[in-house]
Design a binder for these strands. Structure first.
Length: 223
DNA sequence: AAAAGTGTCAACCGCCGGTGC
DNA sequence: AGCACCGGCGGTTGACACTTT
């Protein structure tokens, strides 16, 4: 047997038992969350660290809400999905008590059917995930307080930083640098963008704007 | 009653980025 | 710079429950 095979066969797969849950909960109670790969060594649990982490996050964590989704939750998920695409962790972060896995499953099995949406490949692709991370990292590398602003607005422009823009080079035109108003595009595609003033959007979709206000400085849509 | 079909959702998989050495 | 390790993400799978025939 190869090392790889030996390694993979040392862990159990499939549904968790009550006893396994108890061991994992005891571990978290004593050691806290994190260092998931230590769990099999310390507790003797025949589960890999990844599996332990997932089990805790999706099921055992005390913050996880069980049961049916309410109409309010459905409404919020639908609107956030319209805005963000399949970014389940971001969406779940705005639905208290629900995990990304729950939201994803609920969307795929209930909401997409309810809305008559055919399952399709992720429109907001992995590359856009990277774009967000890169752009935020790029902005934060500077020590300047304005370092999070686009280049054209750097250096004294009064820009509302809560702005969504495409990342294709047109984005710098999307912000009124002199006024305090930000422009917000709800789209993957600059050419067919729907542009709104920040306040205009806020009056229509308060939950979405609450999400933007609290969670992100810039969201770069567009590919 | 039982086989076949369908729905649900917990769990797995592969990939990626961050971090430390 | 390159590597290993870890945590996190979204897509997918498969076991189980439920419904239909």
């Amino acid at each position: 047997m190869s090392d790889m095979e030996e390694k993979s066969s040392e862990y159990k797969k499939g549904l968790w038992t009550v006893e396994e849950d108890r061991i994992l909960m005891d571990y978290v109670r004593v050691h806290g969350k994190g260092k998931w790969n230590r769990i099999p060594k310390i507790t003797g649990l025949k589960r890999c660290g990844k599996s332990c982490r997932l089990r805790w996050i999706n099921y055992l964590s005390p913050g996880v809400k069980r049961g049916d989704f309410s109409e309010e939750e459905n409404d919020l998920i639908i609107r956030l999905h319209n805005l963000l695409g399949n970014r389940w962790s971001l969406i779940a972060g705005r639905v208290p008590g629900r995990t990304d896995n729950q939201v994803k499953n609920h969307w795929n099995t209930h909401l997409s059917k309810k809305l008559g949406i055919k399952k399709e490949k992720n429109k907001v692709s992995t590359s856009s995930r990277i774009t967000i991370k890169k752009s935020r990292q790029d902005f934060s590398t500077s020590s300047s307080p304005n370092s999070k602003l686009p280049h054209s607005c750097d250096g004294g422009g009064h820009v509302n930083p809560k702005v969504i823009m495409t990342s294709d080079g047109h984005s710098q035109n999307a912000v009124d640098c002199e006024g305090a108003q930000g422009l917000v595009a709800i789209t993957d595609d600059y050419e067919s963008s729907s542009w709104f003033f920040h306040d205009e959007l806020k009056s229509h979709t308060p939950n979405v704007m609450e999400f933007l206000d609290e969670s992100l400085d810039f969201v770069w849509l567009g590919l």
